[in-house]
Nucleic acid binder design. Structure first.
Lengths: 151, 151
DNA sequence: TCACAATTGCAAATGATTTGCAATTAGGAC
DNA sequence: GTCCTAATTGCAAATCATTTGCAATTGTGA
C-alpha cells in the first residue's frame, strides 16, 4: 500500500460527525475515505465511481477501494445510490439524518442533472402495496430529456 | 453457422406483420429472430437476455445474436427495454402500434413482476419541462417491494 | 506501545454486453 | 430456379463496470 502518499491538501474531515459514525460501527476513518467524502462534499450532483476516481489525487486511492467505500457509505446511509440507466452507478452525499428522498431530471445528451425536490408517488405506493399485497415498497423514478443548452 | 439446426417446432411467425416490418427496413426475417420473438410472445413479462437465451432450443441462436436482435427489435419499436437495476436489461414485446406505456412492481426477493397499467407522471413531466426548459421528456419509474409469497 | 480486526493495493475473476471477422443466408432480380 | 449482394450469424476476443482473494498495512481501543 501507499499510506503516506495520500494527502497534499489538508482540509479533511468533511462531515463533522463522520468519524463518530464510522467508529460506532467499528469502521476506520482512513485517508482514502476522507478523500472520497471530500469529493462528494464538493459536488451537489450524483457522481459516478469513475468521476470520483478521476478527482482523487493520483495514487490517493485504488479504484477497488472507491467501490468498497461507496458500498460502505451506502450501507451507513451517508450516500444514496442512483441509476441513470447508462450502466454506471452514481452517488450523492446525504446530509446527516435527513431522508432526502428526491429524483432527477437528466439530460440525455450531456448528462446534466437537475435535482427535483418533490416526490409524488407515496400515495401511489400505498395503493400499490394494498392492491398487490406487497410490503416495503420503494421506487425509482428519474426523468430524462434534452436540456436547454443541448437543444 | 448452423442454419438447419434451428427449429424443431414449426409454429413460427409470431407477429403477423413481422416480416413486413422487417422488410420495410431492409432487414431479414431469420430463423433466430423468429425463435426469439416466439419466446417473447409466450411471456407477458419482461425477460432478460439470459432468460431468453435459456429458452431457445440448444444451438438455435448465439448469445451475441440475441443481444443484436434485441437492439434491432428495440429500434424497430417491437420491444421495450426495462432496467430493474440488477444489472441485466429486460425486454417485453410491444403490441403493434400501441404505445403501451406502463410500469412495474418488482419483488426484491424473487423478482416476480406485477405490471402496472396506469402512469401518473404526465402532468409532472409537463411541469418539469416548463420549469427547466427541457424538451422530449420521458421517465423511468419502477416500484420495488416484497411480494406476498416472499414475506 | 500493542494487538488485531479493518482496510488497502494489486491482480485476477465476474458478468453483462459489444465487436471484428470470415463464413453463411435471406430476399429481390433475372 | 439461379444469382448476387447486403444483411446476418457464430465464434472468439475485447470492453466496461464491478467484485473478490490475498498478503501487506494501518487505524483504534486497551
Amino acid at each position: 500500500m501507499k499510506p503516506s502518499a495520500k494527502a497534499p491538501s489538508r482540509r479533511e474531515r468533511p462531515l463533522p460527525d463522520l468519524a463518530d459514525r464510522l467508529r460506532r460501527r467499528d469502521r476506520k476513518l482512513t485517508g482514502q475515505r476522507q478523500s472520497i467524502l471530500n469529493i462528494l462534499v464538493r459536488h451537489a450532483h450524483p457522481l459516478s465511481i469513475r468521476e470520483i476516481f478521476a478527482e482523487l489525487e493520483p495514487g490517493a486511492c485504488d479504484l477497488a477501494t472507491v467501490y468498497r467505500s461507496m458500498h460502505l457509505l451506502e450501507d451507513m446511509g451517508l450516500v444514496k445510490r442512483f441509476d441513470f440507466g447508462d450502466g454506471a452507478a452514481r452517488f450523492e452525499l446525504l446530509a446527516e439524518g435527513a431522508d432526502e428522498h428526491h429524483h432527477h431530471l437528466i439530460c440525455t445528451r450531456c448528462t446534466a442533472v437537475v435535482e427535483i425536490g418533490e416526490c409524488f408517488t407515496s400515495e401511489i405506493e400505498q395503493r400499490l402495496a394494498a392492491q398487490n399485497g406487497f410490503t416495503a415498497i420503494t421506487h425509482r423514478l428519474e426523468f430524462f430529456g434534452v436540456c436547454p443548452r443541448c437543444q
